[in-house]
């Protein structure tokens, strides 16, 4: 009788969550740091107005979810280098459960942070309204999974932990500054805004901003949801194909180009948004609305 991949994924997920909870560095980066960002952004940008809190919450949720890009995906590189993965390889366990457990465990670790951040905004920072929590939930779920999967691709194509850190840092910098998660996209030159439409992080940041600031419904953030879901599916399949158990199984540089295939859905969506979409207008409109008044714009205003 063959072993069940779903049971194996769940078994691995439980142990990986447990291992993460025993890692203080991981807890700091996944729980403490996003909260630190929240209070820092509120201090710097809100100017005493509660109208900005929902906008800042959207940005901080984006940062928290994007953290899945590092999380347990990078841990797989460490496991491979230490020869831990080869012990798992002896068990009746394919690459799928090992990779899927990274995604599910990341998600289970992100959810408590997200809940704490939302409650902190509501009760400690007096955020008016809750936004649309269904849309937030959907985007958090698919966003965490997608960014975990992007991390898995990097983990699959890099040969050493050092290489992983360098490549992740480069990609992360782009995600961080060009998506609207840390700096509002609306204040950048128009060509940068157009380029940002090709980035996965932009869809997450923009969707969450709409869900928290304007209480956009799941239907209204459908484009963001679909873009992230397609990104997740493509990235997961690529990482599954490129996955390596052995530390000495190095990748030729040419094979690393495969990783770029994960960007295909975002290239398609980027072209669509640049040619026919009105996402940039909505982003600018939302930002202007917030800048011009204390309270966030009403839900029907955009999206």
């Amino acid at each position: 009788m063959a072993s069940n991949p779903i049971t194996n994924t769940w078994t691995l997920t439980k142990i990986r969550v447990r291992l993460a909870m025993r890692n203080r560095t991981f807890l700091f980066f996944s729980l403490i740091m996003p909260l630190g960002f929240l209070f820092f952004f509120v201090l710097v940008f809100s100017k005493g107005s509660t109208g900005w809190i929902a906008y800042i919450l959207g940005a901080v949720l984006t940062l928290t979810v994007m953290g899945s890009f590092w999380g347990l995906s990078v841990q797989l590189v460490m496991f491979r280098e230490a020869g831990i993965l080869r012990r798992f390889r002896l068990a009746p366990l394919g690459a799928g459960p090992m990779l899927a457990s990274s995604i599910v465990a990341n998600y289970l670790l992100v959810v408590p942070s997200v809940i704490i951040e939302i409650l902190a905004c509501k009760w400690a920072l007096h955020m008016p309204g809750w936004g649309n929590l269904w849309a937030v939930f959907l985007l958090i779920t698919v966003g965490s999974a997608a960014f975990s999967a992007f991390g898995l691709i990097v983990a699959s194509v890099t040969n050493t932990m050092q290489e992983t850190q360098v490549i992740n840092q480069l990609i992360w910098t782009g995600f961080l500054f060009l998506s609207g998660a840390s700096v509002p996209l609306a204040i950048f030159p128009h060509w940068i805004q157009r380029a940002a439409l090709f980035m996965p992080a932009t869809y997450l940041a923009n969707g969450l901003e709409a869900a928290t600031t304007n209480a956009s419904t799941p239907t209204e953030v459908l484009t963001d949801f679909v873009a992230l879901t397609l990104g997740l599916l493509v990235a997961f399949e690529i990482s599954r194909r490129l996955f390596r158990w052995e530390p000495e199984a190095k990748f030729p540089n040419s094979a690393k180009l495969w990783a770029l295939a994960a960007l295909v859905p975002f290239v398609v969506f980027g072209i669509y948004e640049n040619v026919a979409g009105n996402r940039l207008e909505r982003i600018q409109h939302n930002f202007r609305s917030l800048s011009n008044r204390e309270a966030p714009p009403p839900p029907s205003d955009v999206h």
């Binding site: 009788m1 063959a2 072993s3 142990i15 291992l19 025993r22 890692n23 496991f79 230490a82 020869g83 831990i84 080869r86 012990r87 002896l90 068990a91 009746p92 366990l93 394919g94």
Partner: peptide, 22 residues
Amino acid sequence: AGSEFKQKIGAVLQSTSLPDKL
């Protein structure tokens, strides 16, 4: 043979490890 084969064997590898906090 994949999974069916792995169900039948046990092994101690020469170079391997486990997570430190397991």
